[in-house]
Write a protein that binds this DNA or RNA. Structure first.
Lengths: 119, 119
DNA sequence: TGGATACTTAAGCAGTCACTTGACTGTCCG
DNA sequence: CGGACAGTCAAGTGACTGCTTAAGTATCCA
């Protein structure tokens, strides 16, 4: 059970900021330079750079410098790993509900005594 | 573009911690008391309580106290909103790729001049 | 060459986070 | 009653965040 994953920590942490989600949402529709990314954002350039560093550190964004322009693009696999962790939890919960429904359908006369330990 | 959503901030922030992901993963397979949740975790009870407060504050977990026992359970809708934000970005990216493929297939002889502004 | 352009680095700062310990409040049960 | 149990409150601490300003460094172009 690798819930203590440095990598998931970093991805969710990166997504936990509206500015960084803005940047991701922008890059999803095509690559952009640092100043193109900064333009709609209400903060200094260095601040934007720091957000980009967070996004690059977790692998959500890759960038490449040509001449004096750094061009950034998203790296959707990492987005997917985060999505998959959530999906795994959700489906796990749905499966549990299904099993519970089955049990209740089969054994009508019984006092509700749930509580964990489905291990 | 509601990327600046307090609520998404809080959910992703909550998921950005391995201990809290452990708790979610545990609750996904059934409700549990605070001390049941704390038992496998290598930290003080108050620390676990604080993690639970974060999870409750963002709506990922709901809890109810009966007698001296507080029972916690997950609230999967919130999990879903986070999943959906990511999915939206990913599918948006995939659609862009498809459009790009179509263009390249139709116009073979052309210099690559991408760069944003698909607005 | 020399001035814009496009980042980059560094330092600093207020605020938040993830814990801790210690003291306390209720509840259950013998 | 009285002690164990389950949880809670409060204060403190060291590390990390998200920003800022000021001062660079590299291109590019007229």
């Amino acid at each position: 059970m690798p819930n203590h994953s440095e990598s998931l920590d970093r991805v969710f942490q990166a997504l936990a900021d509206g500015t960084r989600r803005d940047i991701v949402a922008r890059l999803v529709r095509g690559p952009a330079s640092v100043s193109q990314l900064a333009q709609p954002l209400d903060m200094s350039l260095p601040a934007v750079m720091q957000h980009l560093q967070v996004l690059e550190a977790c692998g959500l964004v890759r960038s490449e410098k040509v001449g004096r322009v750094r061009t950034c693009r998203i790296e959707p696999q990492v987005l997917r790993t985060a999505e998959e962790w959530i999906a795994r939890q959700r489906t796990s919960w749905e499966q549990r509900l299904d099993r519970l429904d089955d049990l209740l359908a089969q054994q009508p006369p019984e006092q509700s005594s749930e509580q964990g330990s489905t291990s």
